[in-house]
């Protein structure tokens, strides 16, 4: 029972962080129709950047973390301006493959600047484990969940009340109409990429403070893809609900299925879920089914 409680708590916390990263994907997809397959590499590069700021440059946390956010904003702006802007209205195949190329590029960049294979994120949260009921959970999980939830709240408020947020929602609905209203659509694209990078950066910091900084962080991007597939590509609530489902199935599945199957099942559970969703309900739990016309 204790075991199960532990799995549930860690699964939920991880899942919420996945959902946070997935949200960055959904924002970009909704506003500009670009499928960002470089998500994992964005997570990786921002985790390493954080490591540089906090461990290598020895900056205090209050200065280092804002710098990470600024770096992420800048990265998002550059990516949109240089790579995606020339490709507006290109076929979806180009838009997907260009992000694959971007992912490759970022991974190479990480390999050049931080060639070590493993590093520990400097401790951001207190180390003492907490007891919840009978389970003992390390604090990183709880902090990760809390920070993610706060960010969800802030994003919801932004999309509801901020002018730009409302414009972004409108652009997701109908780009041409938005442009006719005099809203600069390119700025919305740029903004959405900046969001995606910041969310990936926060997710990267949280995930790597739970584990370590390795190339394995790119896997987080793949988990985020399974979140968006399960939740539906164009649904923000879908991502928030599907995240914990993926996180739970990962920890519970790894806990109880490993004796029955082979070790390492944890890494493939998201992919098995993807395949099941593809067969059963390809547009996800909350995704809008596209009716195509010729």
């Amino acid at each position: 029972m204790t075991e199960l409680l532990q799995f549930i708590i860690t699964g939920l916390a991880l899942g919420i962080v996945y959902a946070l990263i997935a949200l960055g994907f959904v924002v970009v997809w909704k506003s500009s129709g670009v499928a960002n397959l470089a998500l994992g590499q964005l997570v990786l590069i921002s985790a390493w950047f954080t490591y540089s700021m906090l461990a290598q440059a020895q900056l205090p946390v209050w200065l280092g973390l804002p710098l990470v956010i600024i770096f992420a904003l800048f990265l998002g702006w550059v990516i949109e301006r240089i790579i995606l802007r020339p490709l507006i209205a290109q076929p979806i195949l180009s838009l997907i493959t260009v992000t694959l190329g971007l992912g490759y590029f970022l991974q190479g960049l990480v390999g050049i600047i931080w060639p070590m294979s493993l590093a520990a994120m400097p401790p951001l949260f207190p180390k003492t484990p907490v007891r919840i009921g009978t389970a003992v959970v390390s604090q990183e999980y709880l902090w990760a969940a809390i920070i993610s939830l706060v960010l969800f709240g802030l994003l919801t408020l932004y999309f509801r009340y901020n002018r730009m947020g409302i414009a972004m929602r409108a652009a997701a609905d109908d780009q041409k109409a938005v442009q006719a209203c005099g809203i600069p659509v390119t700025r919305i694209f740029s903004r959405s990429w900046m969001f995606a990078c910041v969310l990936a950066a926060v997710g990267g910091v949280l995930i790597s403070s739970i584990g370590n900084i390795t190339v394995g962080l790119t896997h987080t991007g793949l988990q985020a893809f399974s979140v968006v597939i399960l939740g539906g590509l164009d649904s923000l609530p879908g991502a928030i609900i599907a995240g914990p489902i993926i996180g739970l199935s990962e920890t519970i599945g790894a806990g109880y299925l490993t004796p029955l199957t082979w070790p390492g099942i944890r890494e493939v559970i998201p992919f098995i879920i993807i395949i099941i969703v593809m067969f059963a309900r390809p547009y996800g739990l909350f995704g809008e089914e596209r009716i195509e016309r010729i």
């Binding site: 493959t97 190329g101 490759y104 590029f105 991974q107 190479g108 990480v110 390999g111 050049i112 600047i113």
Partner: peptide, 11 residues
């Protein structure tokens, strides 16, 4: 890291 960087850039 050079090879992946160049591949990504080329793509």
């Amino acid at each position: 890291g050079i090879a992946p960087l160049l591949f990504g850039l080329a793509i």
